[in-house]
Design a protein around this nucleic acid. Structure first.
Length: 191
DNA sequence: TCGTTGATATTCT
DNA sequence: GAATATCAACGAC
């Protein structure tokens, strides 16, 4: 029996990041299987929450199970799920999906046909699903989102996080081992 | 296949 | 003014 979703998102960011691999996420019926995530803990020097609450990261300090959407490098949107009820400021970044539904809509938004490139990266994922600032703070398991927990754990690989300069040695990037839809390949496999 | 670079919001120094 | 949880286009090999 899978845990209720409020308990599921109450996990520590690192364990939730691993548990999210194989779960499914859709927005207005467009989405697929989560194949790549990164954990950002409260007190983590690489996390946006590290220096306290600002207008941008406000959602990270709000209720768990909500979306934290921010603009990256001035042009891309990135989607996180706020988690860990014990201390505010934790979230899991969704880095890649395996597209399962709404491939045509994704292709239109991305200007591409190649399924492998539709959602392989945090900026690509949000563009394919049509996620922007309007989704910041919305519950990830209520309409227009649809969230389904993984039926069974898959082979989860681990690696260092990408694109950061602080706490770079923490192996807090997780992915579905062997998936073609990762933004970049993984190394070690466990589970 | 690889490295470089442009686009440019938000925060920090 | 500099850095950043990125992506795609481009030129050199």
């Amino acid at each position: 029996m899978p845990p209720r979703s409020d308990e599921f998102f109450a996990q520590d960011a690192v364990s939730l990041a691993a548990a999210l691999i194989g779960c499914e996420l859709y927005l207005d019926g467009v989405g697929g299987r989560i194949v790549e995530t990164e954990a950002y803990r409260a007190g983590d020097a690489a996390s946006h929450s590290f220096r306290g609450e600002t207008l941008r990261n406000r959602a990270m300090f709000g209720p768990i199970g909500r979306a934290y959407v921010y603009r990256s490098y001035g042009l891309h949107w990135c989607l996180n799920i706020v988690c860990d009820g014990t201390e505010p400021g934790s979230a899991v970044l969704l880095r890649a999906l395996e597209p399962l539904a709404g491939l045509d809509a994704m292709g239109r938004r991305r200007g591409l046909d190649e399924p492998r490139l539709l959602c392989a990266g945090p900026g690509r994922l949000t563009q394919a699903l049509g996620i922007d600032a309007g989704h910041d703070g919305l519950a990830i398991d209520e309409p227009p989102f649809l969230f389904r927990q993984a039926a069974a754990p898959g082979p989860v690989g681990v690696g260092p996080r990408i694109g950061i300069t602080k706490a770079i040695d923490e192996p807090w990037r997780f992915g579905l081992a062997g998936s073609r839809y990762l933004s970049r390949p993984l190394r070690n496999v466990s589970g």
